[in-house]
Write a protein that binds this DNA or RNA. Structure first.
Lengths: 205, 205
DNA sequence: GTCTATAAATAGATAGAC
DNA sequence: GTCTATCTATTTATAGAC
């Protein structure tokens, strides 16, 4: 067997990591359900089942905790992008990403974006892991957009940045929530409708 | 001249109304800028230039004040709909409405929609003027959508409710804010891009 | 590290003088 | 009706025992 001292440290670290993962996961869920301003640290602690003071031993502030949750989502998005088959056409990759973000939202795991002058925005703009992830994400997706436009698959008259922002915005599209509240459609149908309006538009073709 | 007593009462009422209009207007602006949860009653009072206690003489709560602002926007939307030429094709009317909501948002006058379990939602769901306005608006627009689909202008495979919700959602589309922050496009160009992605989609045609 | 208890700050709402 | 001053509740954050 391995050195007992190392093993014990490793076990402790695993427990620590698991606890922090549970905290960030709860924050992620509440961030999706009600947004940064409306959610409280008490709720997060209650959902994890620990005292609020314990939570503050792991994260220095509510903003930092929320930022960690945002970084976690960013990492998941990057993992998804990397797992896409390299041979797929750029348009197919873009559609896959859009569909993934919609499924994330329908599953209650996509944070609603912070309002314009929220304190969370300030923190995120100083959060290197988040910004780096955002830049890498935007570069990859932006590249696919440009190629898809050149090949005639995407409308070439739209600036790349406009298409990119539109895809980001559709990840938080309230239409999904509206239709889900209506109760007339399954999650799969809702995602298909949103995909259609996003890529094909409302007009007939 | 008219009866001086009546004239004086009328003048007072005009002042009262003007004051309340100023309050609601400030609330409307802040509702658009940072949303219901993030804005404070102190900010509203400061913007109007009155004491917070005075504000509470006009409106019983923050929720009621915000609801009044929402009703005001609803009334403006109804006025816009009624002013549309009766001879216009339904699709043109739908495009005109969408364009109007985008201009409202670019002008900082479109309230961002309250998060799922905000106390404002509860108040709005009990606010008859708002609900009546919403129903009338939805009926009118829904009728145009159905006709536009029957005439082959709009995609007939989309449920009317999905198109309606999409138009509502695009009134608060964060893409407009993103592009405006980018500083590369004028408001008119941004509105055109949003109109194109909404009705024509991202795909080439 | 986790807890209970509490501090410190903020925000919605009100009392009471004028 | 408007103001100043204050109340009450909530929320972020911390102190200190274990």
């Amino acid at each position: 067997m391995s050195d007992p001292i190392i093993a014990r440290v490793s076990f402790k670290e695993q427990m620590l990591h698991a606890r922090e993962e549970a905290i960030v996961k709860a924050a992620n869920r509440l961030l999706a359900e009600k947004g940064f301003d409306a959610m409280t640290v008490d709720e997060i602690a209650a959902e994890v089942g620990i005292a609020k003071a314990s939570l503050y031993k792991h994260f220095p502030s509510k903003e930092d905790l929320a930022a960690a949750a945002m970084v976690r989502v960013m990492r998941r998005a990057q993992d998804f992008l990397r797992a896409l088959p390299a041979g797929d056409a750029p348009l197919d990759k873009l559609r896959a990403v859009a569909h993934w973000t919609m499924q994330m939202q329908l599953a209650g795991q996509m944070p609603s974006l912070p309002s314009r002058n929220s304190s969370l925005r300030t923190t995120l703009m100083s959060c290197k892991p988040f910004l780096d992830g955002l830049v890498e994400l935007s570069d990859r997706i932006g590249g696919w957009i440009a190629v898809a436009q050149a090949s005639g698959a995407l409308n070439p008259r739209l600036p790349v940045i406009a298409v990119l922002y539109t895809l980001y915005a559709r990840a938080c599209d309230p239409v999904l929530e509206f239709l889900k509240a209506g109760g007339q459609h399954s999650d799969a149908e809702i995602a298909e409708l949103a995909m259609s309006t996003c890529f094909d538009g409302l007009n007939a073709r």
